[in-house]
Structures are given as structure tokens and as C-alpha cells.
């Protein structure tokens, strides 16, 4: 089992750091899955997380100049690691002017991701700073815990409003209530609502547009034949939504959510080379 990767381009490094910063805001501990072509940051549905799950996928070619991965076995050519993304975030934080950043999986005393940052310095040789980030190697028999979650059989799928606007609103609503209702219909309308003894606040978004999902031949989606005005709604923990929005550092190319009434809200945020899915379960 072997992993070595290198980033030389500053723009790629900045981009990668931003992705890691976003992940670090969403999960204290998560799983990093390495394959030949992709990296995945995975948080699986756990009661401790409030049932939230996350699936973030990156194409390694868009970030790394060198990428060598030899998995656990020939027929399981992948590596699954558990780590604290905040460590990676901190290691990359002071690397912003680096000549190169190398990441390598090592096991000197215990498994670590060794991040070596080569920085310019006034002396003849470069300054090299290394960060040993402890990881746990996840054995194969546990890999099934980290399958890609299937897109739920949603009732409504809708594009999100400008995330910046949504973030301001949700932050204010968080001061007023612990939970928020997201409702949307297939006419491009979405409402965010909070209600307490003291106050009720509803924000109305229009003309958001509903994404066209390619329909499976046999699959009868719950969205098919649905009344366009009818709202699907779910009441969720407002803090989870606020965390998702606060973690976004760059505007995604596409942002949408899928709602199953009273069950779950599935967010999909797509950038050119990164996709992030985030599932927030509805509250009882």
C-alpha cells in the first residue's frame, strides 16, 4: 500500500486548501478514500453527527502534478484513511507561497500522512516544513460503511438561491430558532421558515429553477406527475445548514437540493473539479 502525491502549481494548491478548509468546517473526523483517479472525503451517517452525511469527490488530476497510489490489494486498488481534516487544513495554511507540497503515506511509528512543504528561503537551500498528520487505516471489511449514498427518491429538486444570501438569512434565523423548515416546489419556489413563540419569519425565493434529472426508464420517481405548486418540506437542525453554508468559500457552479418531505434534504454543490453532497435528516 503506497501513496505519494505532489502539488507544484500555486493556484492548484490554493484551490486544494480551500476544499480542505470547507471539509474541515463540516466534519471533525472523516474518511479519506484514495483511488487511482479520485480523492473522496466521506462522512457517513452517524447519530453522533446528527445523522448528517457528506460525500465530497475530487479528480486528482485537477490538483496534483504527481499522484501515485497503490491500494491495499490488486483487486482492491484503493486506500481508506480516517483523519481529522483540520490537521490537513492547518498544515496547508502556511504553505500558500510554497514551491512544492508533497503528501505521502508513511508508517514510521504509526500511520501518518506526511505533508512536506518546500518554501523559498534566503539561504542556499529551501526551507522544508513537515507535518505528520496521524491517520487510521481502515481495513477492507469496513469499506462498505463508506459507500456513496444513493440520491434519494426525492419529491422536489430545486436550484438553491445565491449562497451568500442564503447564508445571511440562515445566520440571522439561527439567532431566533434551533430548527428551520425548508420547503420547495417544482415551480422554482423555495421558502425558508422559522417559528417560535415570539416570532415567525419566512423568506420567499422565486424563479430558482428546477434541475432536469435524467429519468430512468423503469424508475417511477416521486417527482413524476407531482403538482407543480405543491411544496415538499422538511424541518432540519438550523446549525447543520448554517455550517454547510458557512463552509463554502467559493461560489459553486451549480447548487441544488433534493427534498423528501419529513425525511431528508440532500444538498449537491458542484464546482468545476469538486463535487460535494451533504445530507441533513429531518427532525422528528
Amino acid at each position: 500500500m503506497r501513496f505519494r502525491a505532489k502539488i507544484v502549481d500555486l493556484a492548484c494548491l490554493n484551490h486544494f486548501s480551500r476544499v480542505i478548509n470547507t471539509i474541515a468546517k463540516l466534519a471533525k473526523t472523516c474518511t479519506l478514500r484514495l483511488t487511482v483517479n479520485k480523492l473522496y472525503f466521506i462522512l457517513s451517517d452517524r447519530v453522533a453527527n446528527g445523522g448528517v452525511s457528506m460525500w465530497c469527490e475530487l479528480c486528482q488530476g485537477n490538483f496534483f502534478d504527481e499522484f501515485q497510489m497503490e491500494g491495499v490489494a490488486a483487486d482492491n486498488n484503493e486506500i481508506y484513511l480516517e483523519l481529522m481534516p483540520d490537521n490537513l487544513s492547518r498544515a496547508l495554511k502556511t504553505a500558500q507561497s510554497a514551491k512544492a507540497v508533497k503528501i505521502k503515506l508513511t508508517n514510521k511509528y504509526s500511520p501518518c500522512l506526511k505533508v512536506a512543504v518546500e518554501l523559498p528561503s534566503l539561504s542556499r537551500s529551501s526551507r522544508i516544513v513537515t507535518h505528520d498528520i496521524p491517520v487510521k487505516v481502515i481495513p477492507r471489511r469496513l469499506w462498505s460503511d463508506f459507500k456513496e449514498p444513493s440520491v434519494p427518491d426525492f419529491e422536489v429538486s430545486i436550484y438553491l438561491p445565491l449562497l451568500k444570501t442564503m447564508k445571511s438569512i440562515v445566520e440571522r434565523m439561527k439567532n431566533l430558532s434551533n430548527c428551520i423548515v425548508i420547503e420547495a416546489n417544482l415551480s422554482g419556489e423555495m421558502n425558508l421558515k422559522i417559528e417560535t413563540d415570539v416570532v415567525s419569519v419566512t423568506t420567499h425565493f422565486k424563479d430558482l429553477g428546477n434541475p432536469p434529472w435524467a429519468s430512468e426508464d423503469e424508475c417511477q420517481s416521486s417527482a413524476r406527475g407531482r403538482d407543480l405548486q405543491s411544496m415538499a418540506e422538511a424541518r432540519i437542525d438550523i446549525k447543520k445548514l448554517q455550517q454547510l453554508l458557512a463552509g463554502q468559500q467559493v461560489n459553486p457552479t451549480k447548487a441544488l437540493c433534493n427534498i423528501i418531505s419529513k425525511r431528508i434534504v440532500h444538498f449537491i454543490l458542484l464546482h468545476e473539479d469538486v463535487s460535494l453532497q451533504y445530507f441533513i435528516p429531518a427532525l422528528a
Binding site: 438561491p161 444570501t165 438569512i169 413563540d197 415570539v198 416570532v199 415567525s200 419569519v201 419566512t202 423568506t203 420567499h204 425565493f205 422565486k206 424563479d207
Partner: peptide, 12 residues
Amino acid sequence: EEGGVVTVCRIN
């Protein structure tokens, strides 16, 4: 209202 988005509040 801002940018076409409307928020309605009822405060007791």
C-alpha cells in the same frame, strides 16, 4: 425585500 427576495416577519 432585497434583490427580489421577500422576507415576512411576525413579532409578538
